[in-house]
Design a protein around this nucleic acid. Structure first.
Lengths: 159, 159
DNA sequence: ATGATTTTGAAATTCATTTTCAAAATATCA
DNA sequence: TGATATTTTGAAAATGAATTTCAAAATCAT
């Protein structure tokens, strides 16, 4: 599963006068090949499978670079630790987050975005970005609740 | 400007077996009488105008209580520090945030919420809460940019 | 290769928030 | 009311995510 939007990471570095390094390339590659919504921890672990000596700081730094250059964007999802997702130019998606199992499902709605820009216009704002997050219980967890007949402990994600 | 939704704070404390104290009551009162979207710092400063010996920890603790009992809710707005807003039962509003001056404007859209629940249903989720944040530049800042003719430094809020 | 410049990793730092703990305040009950 | 058990407070310490520091290592242009 490969995403090819915009120019390659190495080229981007050159344009900014930054150096292409083993760790930068590796981190960027692993990030782009991973599923969406990784935490820094998760990304760091994956990267260390190839090169165990890569430090947290470098992962943070590279993620910041990726974010600045439009390849990644950081999200909070109600937790303290950030998660990073892939960004494809022009395209925007929002999220459904399950408060029980932590599952994150993406969706996109042109109609909602339309209403958003109408509201922004009415209030005199020019919008550059938005976040829409719906928090609740996913189908699987609802089914499990049904089976046990009792409430499952919420926010299992947060411990 | 007084908001009276739900039961009074003191009664709520009693129900939970918590004690009613000078500082708790004072913090809750000042919070409810303040404008929306205060940071903990701001609330603490206000509270200390009356009682300078109140500690940060107590403000945090009371704010958490208020949040748990439905009087307040915490928001992030893309910054590291949380802001707290009043919550009125059943009613939900969302936010426009100016990336230049930090202004926060509230809005509500039944039509967006309708579309949200339709999406949630399609994905099998049961939604309990949502966040919709529109980030951009407000009318005032757009006007200023126009006047100077050049881009104002962005994210002045974040330093 | 040389040398200027950038990047790295480990450890230290920051900063918001939470926790700890002894002293103070509050509620309960005799 | 007073004694006592319990909770709360505030200051300082702890936590935890993210950032910065800095000397050593890597990169790149020549």
């Amino acid at each position: 599963m490969e995403k090819t939007s915009g120019l390659p990471f190495q080229q981007l570095l050159k344009e900014r006068g930054l150096k292409s390094t083993r760790q930068r390339d590796e981190i960027a590659r692993v990030f782009m090949e991973s599923a969406d919504h990784l935490s820094v921890d998760e990304l760091c672990q994956r990267v260390r499978q190839k090169n165990p000596r890569i430090g947290y700081a470098t992962v943070y730094r590279t993620l910041k670079l990726l974010a600045q250059s439009g390849w990644a964007s950081a999200r909070q999802f109600g937790q303290r630790t950030a998660r990073f997702e892939h960004r494809t130019e022009g395209e925007h998606h929002d999220h459904l987050i399950c408060l029980i199992c932590g599952k994150i499902v993406e969706f996109a709605s042109g109609r909602i975005e339309e209403l958003q820009s109408r509201i922004a216009q009415k209030k005199g704002f020019r919008i550059f970005d938005h976040k829409l997050e719906l928090y609740g219980h996913c189908a699987d967890c609802l089914a499990k609740k049904e089976m046990t007949g009792k409430e499952v402990r919420e926010k299992a994600t947060n411990e």
